[in-house]
Amino acid sequence: MTTKLLEVNNLKQYFPIKGGVFGRTVNQVKAVDDITFHVNEGETLSIVGESGCGKSTTGRAVLRLDDPTSGEINFDGENLLQLNKRQMREKRKDLQIIFQDPYASINPRQTVRQVLEEAMAIQHVLPKSERLDKILELLDIVGLGPHQLDRFPHEFSGGQRQRVGIARALAVDPKFIICDESVSALDVSIQAQILNLLKQLQREYHLTYLFIAHDLGVVRHISDRVAVMYLGNIVEIGEKQEIFDNPKHPYTKSLLSAIPVPDPDRKQERIVLKGDVPSPIDPPSGCRFHTRCPFATEKCKNEVPKLRKTETMTGTHQAACHYIEDIESGRKQPNY
């Protein structure tokens, strides 16, 4: 039986743009615009998309690092948006985050011991006397040695620093970890080590991950389900097999076809999208992808497509496109 650990309903995150003499709000960046999804206990849901699609904003909103404009975030049966600051801080014991650049997110003047101890002290995890044992255990779990206990962040390599970031997140025994581009800054060989570590930790401690990434290879490896975002909306969501092998939304298809495959014998047919992602300040009407979509029609300009499931999709797979069936049957042809 699967239980939903995290449920996000109609989440909106608008950032005001201030201007004029009185600093009035002249416009808004609609970074996340009405998204709904859930994460089951013990699974990994990845959010993918290009820069500016709102994937990181979503992660930050869940932790209330930025307070969302509207919506509902239910974690373990409790609406996080109704907690006050103190309650929320306590709640963060269960929800942790691992950032992209551990060097920027770990205090450079603290040793590993201090970093981990502080995390435990804030959340009252263990009595002081038992913390050192726990710290050593954590180091061992993430693959660092006891001799590295009193080292500063700058004494570590990038991969080791990310291990410290992981140890800090684990220090408070969380249920749920948001990984925001946690392996993006690492070299391939080190990235693989960290990915394997994250998977192993998930198995051992029954962790739930919200994995935010732009690298679809990494996403396929780590996820159970995937959500594809474009300009603040989820355009497609479902089990990873479905998203990668049976994508329905034209954006997902072009995104997948754009990734270079490390196999010179397989020259795949590529859908090269025209132009850039439009600005989230004044996003296109209707389907936000219509300005770059080879299938776009008048209807796409006017009507916002809803996430829906068709007969050829299985599981929880849904896509937000008016023409899923017509594109599939070939009734609608792309015009490049």
Partner: peptide, 10 residues
């Protein structure tokens, strides 16, 4: 981004 990368590589 990958879609832009595809444009530049081409």
């Amino acid at each position: 981004d990958v879609t832009i990368q595809a444009q530049i590589l081409e």
